[in-house]
Amino acid sequence: MTRPASTGVRRPPRRHLPLQVFLGFVVVYFLVPFWWVVVNASKDSVGLFGGGNTLWFADSVDYLGNLYQLFTFDGGIYGRWILNSAVYALAGGVGATTLAVLAGYGFARYRFGGRRFAFALVLGALMVPATALVIPTFVMFAGLGLTNTMWAVILPSLLNPFGVYLMHVYARDAIPTEILDAARADGAGELRVFLQVALPLMRPAVVTVLLLSAVACWNNYFLPLAMLSDNRLFPVTVGLGLWQGIASANNAGTTPLWSLIILGALVSVIPLVIAFFTLQRHWRGGLALGGLR
């Protein structure tokens, strides 16, 4: 339990049994879909449609066999989708975060002409439906020959006004002006002040923005769905959506594609779940930022 350090002494845990029992039920609700996927990813078509218990394992538990099928189906297209998603999340996440950190610091720490107006525009952009941008961006990219390339997904992802807003708030509140001035008085240039003094202080916010932008790219569906037609460029969200459409259209429903979709869904969430758990310490403080204004 990490109360802010200012509270001083660690208190004994407060256990409130009825509330804990209630929390138990809540946790079950939130875990049921995961449980269903974990259980059913072990089944083959027979186990899936055999009418057994849908919340428990069938007689044959065959994760490895299903994994082999998943990664070899259609020439290993699934592995490509995961890789594409990783590329989009990494490139979009790192790019958007870099721009947001620079801009947030600039807005917070320099009194330049047009600052208020520009920042008002950024805040206004928070309200623009991201999807309203996709159709015209598609037409523009079509004119430039960029549609159906990875750039079509990465470039628009670099825009993250919310990240700029978060970085602005953090850069304004978490960096004492005296430290910057002291560094300047010691003869450090502005770039060095930013890189060696300000940036380390902004780290919690940087990790948060990085994680949020990477997740947003990994989860993106509308943009790649509109931009890409070559299924070898799909991220895993669009790919699984495609499979699901095919499997549902195959009305009778017993196509082997279903077990691939279930396992595919499971595999695709593992990287993000790991990222969130391992980086927990870093992003939790950062998330409070937006709310505390």
Partner: peptide, 23 residues
């Protein structure tokens, strides 16, 4: 409530956020 289980519950309830809406 500050207990081990409360901390666990917090993570589990947050977990769906890490799942793409499509998935």
């Amino acid at each position: 409530v500050t207990s081990m289980f409360a901390r666990f519950a917090r993570l589990m309830i947050f977990l769906p956020y890490a799942i793409p809406t499509v998935i």
